[in-house]
Amino acid sequence: MDRLQGILTGTPMPAPADIIRHLSFAAIDFESAGAAPGETDQPVQIGIARIDGTAGAIRTWTSYIAVTRPVRWTASKIHGITTEMLAEAPPYISLWPPIKEHLEGTVAIGHNHSTEQRFLRQFPGHGFGPWLDTLALARACLPALPSHSLGDIASALGLTEQISAIVPGKTWHDALYDATASLCILLHLIRELQLEDAPLDRLGFALTF
């Protein structure tokens, strides 16, 4: 049904038989405010890195997000975002147009993407997907790595300089940096495994349709 809706609107969802090199991929990452027991967490930053065709150029977009309660110090300690930094940030609901623009018609990518899917549920019926988990992909392709964090995978594959060149001035736990890292890891593994001309379902072990 989601793919039929996409066809009717002119933006079909990628299908299992689609050839990887012709697909669009968009990696997404959120940083959050943190939550005490019984509270609902809130996003404080979103980052998306997109490529149309595996030989295309990577495009990036990011935004801070307004919150309705203070950012917890435990979360701020990780990503460095404070409540004061969000004083002029837009409300999350107002970011729907750029989010839709960057994710529509793509294979959506996240590194253990449960948080990303949860925050996107605030836009009911968005229809993004399928989803590809770079954590599952890296665990399958690089089982000998002692850690499969984004930073350790990127370092092991020699991608850190490339990621930093795409998003200069940013670092780990910045939403755009982490999203860009996920996309670069995926593209590297696709090329190393020579999967450009394979159907998307060759990555089925890391995909959710």
Rank of each mutant, 00 (worst) to 15 (best):
G105W: 08
G129A: 14
G80K: 01
P90H: 00
T60S: 12
L95P: 04
T62E: 13
L150F: 10
Y92K: 13
L135D: 03
A138W: 01
A138K: 03
R118K: 12
A87N: 09
H126I: 10
I153D: 02
E84I: 06
T106F: 15
L135A: 12
E104P: 00
P97F: 09
T115S: 12
G125D: 08
A144L: 13
L103I: 10
L86N: 02
T82W: 03
W73T: 13
G105V: 05
N112Y: 15
R118P: 01
W131T: 09
I78W: 00
Y64C: 04
G129R: 09
I109W: 02
T134M: 03
A144N: 12
T68H: 07
F119M: 11
R118C: 07
L120Y: 01
V71W: 07
I81V: 13
G105Y: 04
E116F: 02
G151V: 03
R59H: 09
L145G: 09
I78F: 05
P130F: 15
E84K: 12
S147K: 15
L137P: 04
M85Q: 10
P70C: 04
P146N: 05
R59M: 03
W61N: 03
T134A: 02
L145P: 05
T74G: 04
R69W: 00
I153T: 10
L150Y: 09
Q122E: 14
F119W: 13
T82P: 00
S149V: 07
Q122F: 07
A136R: 15
P124E: 04
L95T: 10
Q117V: 14
A66Y: 04
D152E: 13
G151C: 11
F119I: 08
I99G: 04
T74D: 14
E84N: 14
P97Y: 10
A66G: 09
